[in-house]
Design a protein around this nucleic acid. Structure first.
Lengths: 192, 192, 192, 192
DNA sequence: TATGAATGAGATTTCATTCAT
DNA sequence: AATGAATGAAATCTCATTCAT
């Protein structure tokens, strides 16, 4: 029998969520067995089912965990004391970061999971809602003008998303911001 | 003993691919069992393995099948005898069609497959390559001007993709084309 | 639902090995299904795969098990406190015993396994290595003389092996020992 | 549809037996699928079952084929017009040949067939019966003397068998014949 | 005599989940 | 709060054999 290490419930649960999340991103949900999660942590299988009802249960928890962390970051940017355009470029930077994190891993995984897909989509939607808010504020303040603001922002976010995926050459920050300016009909160089 | 119905290999193989494809879209790859595919057709399980090495093998075949069908459609548009702007809007229309087809189904599927995801991505990339070609031809003919043509088209395609997914209200054809015009810096109404 | 009987891993693993070994000898490896092994013990099929990676895995384990048991017996004879010629005849007796055990069973089995064959060969080789040691010791002590000691012992062991297989009439112990004496150029009757 | 090559029944049947035999020795019976046999020849599966009732049926035929070929060779030696001792050494030489043929192949095959085993055994028994005959003739003619002629010859054949298998260094013809002489209590060098 | 698509029983294997300890 | 042996349903895959052509 292994030496039993007792932890606070919250700490243990969080440990499982983080470990599962890492493995899910690395190898895909379908290729991550419960046994692997518990072996990685070094606990018994039964403990997993003490904290989670099922595998699906931990998947949801992992997604929720990632999204709520992102929410904190974005919320801080929005309420921070920097100028309007800076906020836009900060959003874009944050976006690039999480994209890279989610995608670096999901490339390897050739299995048929849509875990990263859901995660990405939820992240995109979150950042999208923040951006929509920011843009509509900008419009009412007269900082920019757009015929279809919501649609334009949607296309911007998901367009960038794909651009990061597919381009052979890594897209530089400058080009990226230029594309944002173009999409939002902003003066050239204002986000730089 | 079942009465044995013999078919030409090509016909049978194609029958399996189409049946599998339909089920994959309806219920996801993971939720579609080999036994279901063969039961749907009404043949023995062994026959499946006579034509395909494994489940993965048929997945690849299904994807290839969908993509090659799309390729024919797009290729016909490109070589057809209609004017330049008409071709663009035809591409967009085709795009909308397949998107609807892939997505109508993938909504139901709550499993963890990314079959539709891969399919969508490959379709997007195919249409993207056709559009890039068309746009660069247009640029060299002086029909339009863009600073980052490839990046712009990429963002356009994937932006639209998401727009169709997410907007509560269905995006009308008019708005869609307007967004395309805006993205490509084309005169308002020219694609209508 | 079955009542679950929990055992120590070592005990369970050993239980599986012994049961599998018995069935393998009785019916041949190919004719022994995993399902039979677990049904015989009265556990679930999954438990088998909890302890063994595959059917091949348990086959190896069974062979190893038989051989290591034989090794203990032979090793005890070698180090025991009896006279030199007695050791030889004890080796022969042990040999006869295991031969009978392996062959009694393998007669029934008309399938195409060579499980008993491998087992027999490994046993033969083990006893052979012990005998070679004993003989060479005897030679250096001047207890016997042989031109080709290793070859002679090899032929002796495998010759006896076959003799036990094939002769219609069961070979008596006396004849057997006489043949050993003849092979090793020992005085007639010294092993009796 | 393939071009259909029609052959005489005997020729076809023999073609299947020879091909099957080659594959059985190369890869083992269990690893040789009916499909492989017919593909190697270039005919359809159905044809196999036109000539053979089952896989077991062809296995028997293959064994019979090998054995009857050996029988011809041995029979020729026995009735040939050479001296007594020469016949013995010719038998041994033939024996070495077929052993090499059966074993060179069966080494590779790590599967659980006893095809080579059966084949070897039947060959050994055939040569054994010829040798017993020869030896007993020799005894009645006063050419040699043995206490247990049959047992001795049995041990000789099977002992040599193993010797060829196991010895790291290939056993030379001279040593081999020396061992035969020793076993049969023949004067040293008479077989050389 | 020959074809090869089709059959189907059954084997091995996987793994999320349970529960006696 | 923790263990890990045990469960069992279900999935994938194999291949000797059959039979419509």
């Amino acid at each position: 029998m292994k030496t039993r290490i007792v932890k606070q419930p919250d700490e243990r649960k969080s440990e499982i969520i983080k470990t599962a999340g890492r493995l899910f991103l690395q190898k895909g949900v379908h290729n991550t067995k419960i046994s692997e999660i518990v072996e990685t942590i070094g606990v018994a299988k039964g403990l997993f089912y003490y904290y989670f009802k099922s595998k699906d249960d931990v998947i949801s928890a992992v997604i929720e965990h990632f999204i709520s962390e992102l929410d904190v970051v974005l919320s801080n940017i929005l309420s921070s004391d920097i100028n309007y355009y800076k906020k836009i470029s900060k959003f874009i930077d944050t976006y690039v970061q999480i994209r890279r994190m989610f995608n670096k891993n999901s490339c390897n995984n050739n299995d048929n999971d849509n875990f990263s897909y859901i995660l990405l989509k939820k992240s995109n939607n979150l950042i999208l809602s923040y951006l929509k808010l920011l843009i509509s504020t900008g419009i009412s303040k007269g900082l920019l003008r757009l015929r279809y603001p919501d649609e334009t922002v949607t296309m911007l976010v998901y367009g960038l998303n794909e651009l990061m995926d597919s381009s052979q050459k890594k897209i530089g920050r400058a080009v990226m911001l230029a594309l944002v300016e173009q999409s939002l009909s902003l003066p050239c160089g204002i986000l730089a």
